[in-house]
Design a protein around this nucleic acid. Sequence first.
DNA 1: TTGTATTTTCAATAAATTTTGAAAATTCGG
DNA 2: CCGAATTTTCAAAATTTATTGAAAATACAA
Lengths: 168, 168
Amino acid sequence: MKLTEAKQQFISSWGAFGTHWGINRTMAQIHALLLVSPDPLTQDDIMEELNISRGNTNMNIRELINWGLVDRVLLPGERKEYFTAEKDIWKVVKQIVKERKKRELEPMLQLLDKLEEVEGDKRDKHVKSFVDTVSGIKKLGRQADKTLDTLVKAEESWFISSLMKVFK
Amino acid sequence: MKLTEAKQQFISSWGAFGTHWGINRTMAQIHALLLVSPDPLTQDDIMEELNISRGNTNMNIRELINWGLVDRVLLPGERKEYFTAEKDIWKVVKQIVKERKKRELEPMLQLLDKLEEVEGDKRDKHVKSFVDTVSGIKKLGRQADKTLDTLVKAEESWFISSLMKVFK
DNA sequence: TTGTATTTTCAATAAATTTTGAAAATTCGG
DNA sequence: CCGAATTTTCAAAATTTATTGAAAATACAA
């Protein structure tokens, strides 16, 4: 397979992959393109490679920067902005985990705390079932939260070798 | 907070949560409703509680059954079908991990295997950058695959206590 | 400054996804 | 079987989400 074709397949399936994870297709595709590009690219490079409009490109680059996955690069003597993606996949994973934990897991745990204190007689099976479910989710959620905290701080090599021992 | 309100909040935020994970709102809401219901419900119960159409209800229940998260229950002497959700959250998580691994991670790893064999001179920085990125993702992906395999087989108590030791 | 290159915004449009509801298919007691 | 109850299907409609492109804002060299 030629590089051009391989690159396109990679970008396209990274885009499809993203849609299963709440990330829009274009954002994932731009990320994929930057991941495999040896040098920083401009907005125009990205527009051309992916055949998307200027506005779309701009918004999604901005979003990738918010996620901490892409950085602006200023090349000396160049007027245009260049963009580059973090290439260390372990760092990318940690960054995504960190953001999603903050945006999704933590608010959910806060809500569950409130919901667990629902009024009513625990002998009522409707109340009991609700409280039991909420408690169960909360317990696992808190565990996940702690585990992910540690993962976010971990070095790749340490992480992998530790897991190898536990999950032998 | 009253049970009715708490239930609605739970269902609604579980639905929103789902949309960040590639699951549609209604499917997640039906799942949430069944999770907190002490007894099995019929399609009509679900339609009424969530204010959704029969077709929508039916399709999403079917999808939840495909995911192994909901079971059909036949009550003796009743013509209608009843539905119930697995209440053990650990089992729910394992089931979801198992399905997503099969549907998303494994196909991605297969693709990366192919893409890694791209033609071209490794001294060309474009080729090198592509191969390095793909290899990096593949390596981490394979590790995740193994880890998740073990997780899927694990008991909750074992899982939690092991992780507590590693991530001290 | 001023003029031009570049980036950003956002209302309008397009595309994708979800939902509806009525018709068709199926199930099952009598 | 028959017929009513129940489930399933799916084309059309509604809704949500993504994309465009042109205008406005900004940045910067001269």
